[in-house]
Simulated assay, not measured.
Amino acid sequence: MGRKAAAAAFVLVGLAGSVLPAAAQEKVTVGVLRFVSSGGLFLAVEKGYFKNEGLDVELKFFEAAQPIALAVVSGDTEFGVTAFTAGFYNLAGKGALKIIAAQAREKKGYEGNLVLASNAAYEKGLTSLDKLAGKSVGITQVGSSFHYQLGQIATANGFDLKAVELKPLQSLPNMVASIKSGQVDAIIIAPHLAKPLVASGEAKLIGRVSDVTEYQFGGLFTSTKMISDKRATVEKFVRAYQKGAEDYAKAFLTKDASGNIVYTADSDAAAALVAKHVYPSEEPAQAAAKVKASAFFVDEKARLDVADILTQVQWLKAEGLVDASVDAKSILDLSFIEGHTNVN
């Protein structure tokens, strides 16, 4: 082989080597809602953390949390990132699912779900959380995270949850439409959806869930089969996911000595990346501003509040929404992340 031919062959080999990592990417799908609370996942995708681990991640968007759990069980998606529901806990209790990392928490001093009243209900006196008894509240589904949150609000305000008329509406868009039309008296919903309704005068803010309770409302989960058959893939996914959570916390949750959140140029850049997934059809600058104004608390290492998950399951059992046989500890796999809180 002549020198020129040898050199050309060397270049071709080098080029082939440079594309091998892309060719070797393992495809995985994640079920998720278009929520700011999943911002860590979106940042990990946008910043290439998954690709650096050899994973080609496809995001599949849903309109409610429960279908995501079903998608993971069926194998339609390998992972899910969303709020916990009674249906999720029942599936996990049968051995189908495992919680492996945290999503977001309700935490005092940070943004969280908001309770809105319809304009008509507000005019009739529904101006605070203690007045929800006797009113109708729209939720996605019975046993949803919104259902659980309403239960905590009822307990904190001294009224029986049975005094509230729950209206399962199946999806977030239906919840938004119902409060605008006055079909329901109130809803509990994420801030990125609630704030535009309040700003436009289509609903009234009457309370914040984080002022009532702090709890681990969402997480990253996968199937037991995935952990058994592809543990290395799960480990790669979690490593990338943690990097995204850390970036999210730095961008949106850093506080100064006075307790005020401090935003930087990095915050703006991160907000723009998250906004691509939460507000894909909106003007980028406005969408980024909405992201910053609606950022939930997310643990920087995606660590779970284990005791709170056990408390959720106990409450849902008492309400007859989770089967009594479900062992809450068995639905957790804490081996992928160190330092989960309130483990004992």
Score class of each variant (00 low, 15 high):
91 L>I: 09
247 D>N: 09
240 A>D: 04
48 G>M: 10
261 I>D: 05
316 L>A: 04
95 G>Y: 11
26 E>Q: 15
157 N>Q: 11
173 P>R: 03
282 E>H: 09
42 F>S: 11
99 I>E: 05
200 S>T: 14
294 S>R: 03
179 I>K: 00
77 T>M: 13
233 T>Y: 04
166 L>D: 01
66 Q>W: 03
288 A>K: 07
35 F>P: 02
122 Y>G: 05
321 L>Q: 10
335 S>M: 03
217 F>C: 01
127 T>N: 14
44 A>D: 01
263 Y>F: 12
177 A>T: 07
3 R>V: 14
173 P>Q: 01
108 K>Y: 09
239 R>K: 15
211 D>T: 11
197 L>H: 06
4 K>T: 13
116 L>F: 06
176 V>I: 15
5 A>E: 12
202 E>Y: 07
198 V>A: 01
203 A>E: 05
36 V>P: 09
177 A>L: 10
129 L>P: 00
249 A>F: 10
339 G>F: 02
170 Q>L: 14
298 V>K: 07
103 Q>R: 13
336 F>V: 05
206 I>H: 08
45 V>H: 08
344 N>F: 03
221 F>E: 04
238 V>C: 10
191 P>H: 02
251 A>L: 06
57 V>E: 06
263 Y>C: 07
164 V>Q: 01
113 N>W: 01
208 R>N: 15
40 G>Y: 06
304 L>G: 13
239 R>G: 13
245 A>W: 08
163 A>W: 00
342 N>C: 05
293 A>F: 07
264 T>S: 14
195 K>E: 15
207 G>L: 02
154 A>G: 11
132 L>M: 07
308 D>G: 13
134 G>P: 04
331 I>A: 03
93 G>R: 12
236 K>C: 13
23 A>F: 11
118 S>Q: 00
176 V>Q: 11
258 S>L: 10
27 K>Y: 01
342 N>I: 04
141 Q>G: 11
314 Q>I: 13
244 G>S: 03
185 D>M: 00
38 S>V: 08
53 E>T: 12
70 L>K: 15
101 A>I: 02
227 I>H: 03
290 K>L: 10
